[in-house]
């Protein structure tokens, strides 16, 4: 999932207080799971803005709404559109995708990002999320016993570990596991360590970010021009 964390309250307050009516728009998917921008977090920010505006003597109205996903057209239903139309500005607590999608759908509305989108990751334990994927466009995880050196090695080394690996930890941060130490350990357990004796060639990064924003097209799923939904 996409993992995010809420922006600093003062930043959000500064944005909200510029308007008379502000809608806090939550997203019920990834940011709900990572406790950054779901219904609960929307309610917390709502309460905080109300308390702070009372303390600081500002006068603006805050309303809340959370939809299942902000990266899919179908969830921006009539109720959502009505609430967005009634507000002067929207602070969306969705990831960067949701913020952009909401802006595209409501071009006349000022849309602010309420969270910082940080990485694609997993819930390692309750309250702890870690990066697991870099979205490089060509998955090579199976070559490395299910541990991604692109996302989890600080240098994204294809042939590691480097000299900075010490007792299974990375020199960048003593709390961070060395991805290559994990790869070697796991491949030993699987009895496939021999495979590492072959040099992995430099990765083809053309599938990654170097060509600008990427697209995936499923022609079989696309609608004919005549059946596309308006707006």
């Amino acid at each position: 999932m996409i993992v995010a964390e809420r922006k600093l309250f003062d930043d959000l307050y500064a944005k909200a207080s510029k308007h008379k009516k502000v809608l806090l728009l939550g997203c019920g998917t990834c940011v709900t799971v990572c406790m950054a921008g779901g219904e609960k977090e929307v309610d917390i920010l709502d309460s905080q803005l109300k308390l702070a505006s009372r303390e600081r003597g500002d006068d603006f109205e805050v309303t809340t709404h959370t939809i299942v996903r902000q990266c899919d057209d179908e969830f921006f239903d009539e109720e959502t559109s009505r609430k967005i139309a009634a507000a002067d500005a929207v602070i969306t607590l969705a990831c960067g995708v949701g913020v952009q999608f909401c802006s595209e759908k409501y071009p006349e509305k000022r849309v602010y990002a309420g969270v910082n989108t940080v990485f694609y990751g997993a819930t390692v334990e309750q309250g702890l999320w870690e990066e697991r994927c870099a979205g490089c466009g060509e998955c090579i995880v199976d070559q490395f016993a299910g541990i991604c050196p692109v996302a989890r090695c600080a240098k994204s080394l294809m042939n590691g570990p480097c000299g900075g690996s010490s007792n299974g930890k990375c020199e960048v941060d003593k709390e961070t596991d060395c991805a290559w130490a994990l790869i070697v350990k796991r491949m030993k357990e699987l009895g496939t360590l021999e495979e590492l004796s072959e040099i992995t060639l430099p990765k083809d990064w053309s599938t990654s970010r170097d060509g600008g924003p990427r697209r995936i097209v499923h022609e079989s799923l696309r609608l004919d021009e005549g059946t596309k939904k308006e707006g």
């Binding site: 309250f9 905080q48 702070a52 303390e55």
Partner: peptide, 8 residues
């Protein structure tokens, strides 16, 4: 902490 952020 959340309260402190708001000034309460």
């Amino acid at each position: 902490k959340l309260l402190e952020e708001t000034g309460v």
